[in-house]
Simulated scan of single mutants.
Amino acid sequence: MLMTFEDAMGRILLDLSDEAIRRLDHLKQRRNLPRAELLREAIEQYLDRQNQDVVQRAQGLWGEGVEDGLEYERKLREEW
């Protein structure tokens, strides 16, 4: 079997509370997927969300109401 770089996986030991394991097992039954697959999916989603948070924080004060950069520059220059 040919294994590509993307297929290579490492192992990690993870301690979870009994409650988390119970909930994971419930989800495992509902979705008919192994625990490992559910955990991989959850970790990928978490990492993606962390990357999105970094980008949003980098936008600083602009936030949701992004103003055109050129228009903002013109307003600033009018103050000179």
Results as ranks from 00 to 15, higher is better:
K75F: 07
L27F: 07
E79M: 12
W62E: 15
D68L: 06
Y46S: 09
E37F: 02
M3G: 01
R31Y: 03
N51D: 14
R57D: 10
L61D: 13
E37I: 03
E71D: 14
V54N: 05
D18W: 01
R57H: 10
T4N: 12
L24M: 05
D53Q: 15
E19V: 03
Q56P: 00
K28I: 01
E64M: 06
Q56Y: 09
L38W: 06
G10Q: 05
R22I: 01
E67A: 14
S17D: 12
L76F: 09
A8T: 07
T4W: 01
L61K: 10
D53L: 15
D18T: 11
W62H: 12
L13Y: 02
D48Q: 12
I21H: 06
D25H: 08
I21V: 15
H26P: 00
V54H: 11
P34S: 11
E37D: 09
L61T: 09
P34T: 09
A36T: 12
W80S: 09
M9S: 13
L33P: 01
L61P: 02
R49I: 01
E6N: 11
D53E: 15
L70I: 11
A20K: 10
G10W: 01
E73N: 05
K75N: 07
Q29D: 13
T4M: 06
K75P: 00
G63P: 04
M3N: 06
G69D: 10
G63R: 13
G63N: 12
L47Y: 02
G69S: 12
R40K: 09
F5I: 10
Q50R: 14
K75Q: 14
R57Y: 08
I12L: 13
E73H: 08
K28F: 00
G69Y: 05
L38E: 05
G10R: 04
I12Q: 06
V54I: 15
G60F: 05
L38K: 07
G63L: 09
S17Y: 05
L39Q: 01
R35H: 14
R77Q: 11
L38S: 08
D25Y: 01
L27A: 15
L70F: 12
L24E: 02
D15Q: 07
L2H: 04
P34R: 09
H26G: 04
R31A: 08
I21F: 02
G60T: 03
Q52E: 15
E19N: 06
P34Y: 01
E73G: 02
E67K: 14
D7R: 09
Q45W: 04
G69N: 07
E79G: 01
A42N: 05
L61R: 12
R23E: 10
A58V: 00
D53F: 10
A36D: 09
L14F: 03
I12C: 08
L76N: 07
Q29P: 00
L27W: 10
L33E: 13
G60E: 06
E37S: 05
L2R: 07
R22W: 03
E37W: 03
S17G: 11
I43G: 04
A8H: 07
L61I: 08
E64T: 12
E78F: 04
V55K: 15
E19L: 05
L39A: 08
K28W: 00
G60R: 10
F5T: 10
Q29N: 13
Q29S: 13
E78L: 11
Q45P: 00
E44P: 00
L61C: 04
Q29M: 11
W80E: 11
D7A: 15
E71V: 11
L14Y: 02
R77N: 06
R40G: 04
N51W: 03
A42Y: 07
E44F: 02
Y72H: 13
